[in-house]
Design a binder for these strands. Structure first.
Lengths: 336, 336
DNA sequence: GTGAAAGCGCTAACAC
DNA sequence: GTGTTAGCGCTTTCAC
């Protein structure tokens, strides 16, 4: 049988209330009995049962994390940073791969509720705001990471996608590129939209014309990106640079170039986005716009735990700045 | 206030026992009251509180997963497959990044126990068998994935590393290679040892001499592997093929070759291990020994849940066969 | 300083 | 078929 406060109370010759108090630093307990209780607990290697504790209204010290897919390096890194910070603060995290499927999302949300998690961090593309809104109404803290949902009364941490798109494009423009393509996964999503907007803004400021033939949408896979890049690069008037809206797409672009005998970065510059582990593994190492994933994870966790503890400094929307990391996949334009 | 069985019992004009019974399909309940209870529950969108249920001795439907690092694509994929299967079976998984640090491991294990998880799946390199052994003694199911710990009375799922090393080497030998290097992360670990042993066996059967200068240990990073491969390839008598004990190391080897102007696969063949997402992203796409990660995750979860449910078909050690996936990073030896 | 007792939401005998 | 009741292990008033 697992040892409970009853066991240790009996052996220490005190009541369970006293034991509970020493473990929670509540009320007045004489130093003497404190020590006795602690000592006995030690001997029996007593571990409080958190279920019971949670049942009386305390926290479960568990938060849920809804992400599309752990295999996507970006989300793996987000998860890692969230888990790290949560663990530092004494919380565990339950991971939920939703594949951006509303049904799965709802199933997970319902399960997490039944388990009384203290809060839920959402990185998923939930079309179903509804479920999240309900959570919030039921006073379950929700926080978003790497996702916008302005209509939702929840704290969020995002990167300034506009600035990211702008700096990627500006960097290429400064390097003398004039025909710069953009490959995105999905232009419906606000982060892609913003990156595109930043890109356009940079073009505009440089008085470069915006050519919509250079803006392509691809499947979200290396293969998909490679195919679209292949088409793009096969044209007469191919671009001299590509800004890919994430590292995976950038890798596809680099592969397409290599397949066509186009040298990266000599004949084609490629800039990615995210600065995941992939950027360091590509060849050449990828110049990419870094999302400060560590920082983002750290911050969402802090935000949601503040809310859990009711130290609510009101809901916040934290916008972090991306940073261009220069590696080797982009160069000044040949002949410029 | 959240709605409880009391609420729905009152409104349905029955006792809480009845309500509990309909939700657990226990005892005899007239179809009529069944419907009434269900209907009222629906209206109040009642969700059973799993904490309370667990407190009475039932399962928490939560399992812990100890892995070194989610950012490592291999473990990300393991986690994904574990979570997928667990979710299918109605379980949630709490993720724990241990960085192979015994202290962190112990902290996690202790926390998971306090939360009464139903079982713990270990993919971590735990030096501290002790903690795991204690768990088992306390009758908390433990199962291992991608790790050996023969001294531990726990089920495990592993790949046949010997066969993997053997097939990688054999493939290269069949392609005419005679000088085949091996790069490993850590030869202390049983999986590396086995892969090496398989490699040696293949050499031996082919009557090729074993040259220990061709067996290198590298840091576990692309950079580390690149550095060691660089040294290896700079020698007069450089190998014509490299078998890297995982995909990350293989990528480092490929980059080293490229840096030296050695063409992969024309002038140097490289074979990896794991078949993670990285293998599809490398350029050229990587020929690698696939661990059936999906299958492995699926099986550990099944094993541990059997144990949780006491359908113990005795502890098992499942050994899955790896499969060589031929992509583009290895070729018959030039001139052979 | 310490303890008695009620209660968190649910399950499981055991009555009726 | 359905209800009563005693827990599960802990927290928290409120007495003493």
């Amino acid at each position: 049988m697992k040892t409970t406060i009853y066991d240790i109370a009996r052996l220490a010759g005190v009541s369970i209330a006293t034991v509970s108090k020493v473990f929670n630093d509540k009320g007045r307990i004489s130093e003497e009995t404190r020590q006795r209780v602690l000592q006995i607990s030690e001997e029996l290697s007593y571990q409080p049962n958190m279920l019971a504790s949670a049942l009386t209204g305390k926290k479960t010290y568990t938060i849920g994390l809804l992400i599309p897919d752990l295999v996507n390096p970006f989300f793996a890194e987000v998860s890692r940073s969230v888990e790290d910070r949560a663990h530092e603060l004494g919380f565990n995290v339950v991971i939920c791969n939703t594949d951006n499927d509303s049904n799965k999302e709802n199933k997970y949300i319902s399960l997490l509720r039944q388990k009384s998690v203290d809060g839920i961090i959402v990185a998923t593309g939930a079309r179903n705001e509804e479920a999240l809104r309900e959570l919030i109404e039921q006073r379950i803290p929700v926080a978003l990471i790497a996702r916008e949902m302005s209509s939702l009364p929840a704290s969020s941490v995002v990167v300034d996608d506009f600035a990211g798109g702008y700096s990627a494009a500006s960097y290429l423009i400064a390097a003398g590129h004039e025909r710069i393509a953009l490959i995105a996964e999905n232009l419906e999503v606000s982060s892609s939209k913003e990156r595109l907007r930043g890109y356009r803004q940079a073009l505009e400021e440089a008085r470069l014309s915006y050519d919509e033939n250079l803006v392509l949408v691809s499947d979200f896979s290396v293969q998909g990106s490679k195919q679209t890049a292949l088409k793009l690069l096969a044209t007469d008037s191919r671009p001299t640079a590509i800004f890919a809206c994430n590292d995976i797409l950038a890798i596809g672009a680099i592969q397409a170039a290599r397949e066509l005998g186009i040298e990266v970065p000599e004949d084609l510059s490629v800039v990615g986005f995210d600065n995941t582990i992939l950027a360091t593994m590509s060849d050449p190492p990828m110049t990419t716009v870094a999302q400060p994933i560590q920082e983002m994870g750290h911050q969402v966790v802090d935000l949601i735990i503040q809310e859990i503890n009711n130290e609510k400094k009101a809901r916040q929307r934290v916008v972090l700045l991306p940073e261009l990391i220069v590696r080797g996949s982009a160069l000044p334009r040949a002949g410029s």
